[in-house]
């Protein structure tokens, strides 16, 4: 990788100042950023580590109402601590990457990167979570802006994510055989007001809500109700691991599995 200056502030305020510098970029767990820097696809002048900021870490919540995850909280910590509030979220975190990746990777880093096959975006979008930054609160429906893109501005740092707790929820994913990212993953969350379904891994546009499935499931929360329903294959990713049609098909299978798991 190219060389850069490294700073590791201990407060959010210091981090914000550091990120105002020329070509400064935040570093969370680094599990995606560092590999892309090794390939010289990314060349920050200054890397501002967020892992030294205690305020950005931790899981807190109110049973049955909401859970808030600090942006620099690792997947492993979410897996271990979020289950008391939101089991489906903890389960998702427990299956991201591999154990060593889960000990470094963070929810904030995952969301800011918005990899089209990452797991967290599905949970955030299906849950209707709120992303809090140093500047504002952003609703999940407004946050994602296509593959590897979000509405975050230069220098804007995610500080936490707050998930409302659904009545029932589950995540089902089908692994891409090589990378073990989601070839297609479906997060289903049933709230009093209706069901939300978010699909990751499948679309060229990144994570998306599958609204047809949501209306069907809001009427009848069962996998059988989805029989024969598929999102359009147009706009789905097609690569050596699966055609667009296959991914569209997997959207149906994974959503049904998630519904079954949510009970």
């Amino acid at each position: 990788m190219y060389n850069f200056d490294f700073v590791r502030p201990s407060t959010l305020a210091e981090a914000v100042i550091a990120l105002a510098g020329d070509e400064a970029q935040p570093l969370a767990g680094g599990q995606t950023l560092l590999p892309s820097m090794k390939q010289r696809l990314n060349m920050p002048g200054t890397l501002v580590s967020l892992t030294g900021i205690a305020d950005l870490k931790g899981v807190s919540g109110e049973a049955g109402a909401s859970v808030t995850i600090g942006a620099a909280t690792t997947h492993a910590q979410v897996a271990a601590e979020a289950g008391a509030f939101y089991p489906a979220l903890a389960d998702l975190a427990a299956r991201i990457g591999d154990p060593a990746v889960r000990n470094r990777g963070t929810i904030g880093g995952s969301l800011a990167n918005n990899d089209p096959s990452a797991c967290y975006p599905a949970a955030v979008l299906a849950s209707g979570a709120t992303i809090t930054t140093n500047k504002r609160e952003i609703a999940a429906d407004d946050f994602f802006d296509g593959m590897f893109a979000t509405v975050l501005e230069e220098g804007e740092i995610i500080t936490s994510v707050t998930f409302p707790i659904p009545q029932a929820a589950a995540y089902a994913k089908f692994l891409q055989p090589a990378s073990r990212f989601a070839l297609t993953g479906a997060f289903v969350a049933r709230f009093e007001g209706g069901v939300r379904v978010a699909i990751t891994g499948a679309s060229e546009g990144g994570v998306f809500r599958w609204s047809d499935a949501e209306s069907v499931l809001s009427n009848s929360f069962s996998g059988d109700a989805l029989a024969g329903k598929l999102p359009a294959a147009e706009g789905m990713i097609s690569d050596l691991h699966g055609s667009a049609a296959y991914r569209a098909h997997l959207c149906g299978v994974m959503t049904r599995r998630a519904v079954a798991a949510a009970g």
Binding site: F6, G30, R104
Partner: peptide, 15 residues
């Protein structure tokens, strides 16, 4: 105490 991939962590982060 936690397993990490040392190829995906900066030395300075381990200070």
């Amino acid at each position: 105490g936690k397993a990490v991939k040392s190829c995906t962590m900066l030395a300075m982060e381990a200070e």
